[in-house]
Every structure is written in C-alpha cells, then in structure tokens.
C-alpha cells in the first residue's frame, strides 16, 4: 500500500496539470472563435514562414 504515497500525489498533479492547461487556454482566448480556428489551418498564408 505504500505505493499510494506516490500514486495519489501523482494523480492529483496530473489532474491539476489538465486544470491549469484549461485555465491557460481560457485566458488566452482560445475559445473565442471555435469556428474560425477550425478553418484557419486550411489557409496557406503562413505555411512558409511565421506571421511576424
């Protein structure tokens, strides 16, 4: 049962990682334009070089 000492914190940290990622995505406006984002990758505009 000693393995629980590692496993429970590990599961919590992994879950927390997901939570933090979600907050990051929320804060960086990644859910503002789902429709546009789903189509932007079709555009060849920045295929050869990045935007700036």
């Amino acid at each position: 049962m000693n393995v629980l000492v590692y496993l429970i914190p590990v599961s919590l940290v992994l879950g927390g990682l997901g939570l933090v990622t979600f907050f990051w995505a929320l804060r960086s406006s990644q859910f503002e334009d789902p429709e546009g984002d789903s189509r932007r990758f079709l555009s060849p505009d920045y295929d050869d070089h990045p935007k700036e």
């Binding site: 599961s11 919590l12 879950g15 927390g16 997901g18 939570l19 979600f22 907050f23 929320l26």
Partner: peptide, 21 residues
C-alpha cells in the same frame, strides 16, 4: 461566463479525483 466556466472546471477536477478515491 468565465466565472462559471472556471468553477465548472475546478468542480470537474475535484469530483473526478474524489470519485476515484
């Protein structure tokens, strides 16, 4: 919307972990 969504996300995280236990 963000206020609710943030709480929804935290509740989901907490519920999943507690449910496992």
């Amino acid at each position: 919307g963000r206020y609710l969504l943030t709480r929804l996300a935290v509740a989901f995280f907490a519920m999943m972990n507690v449910m496992l236990l």
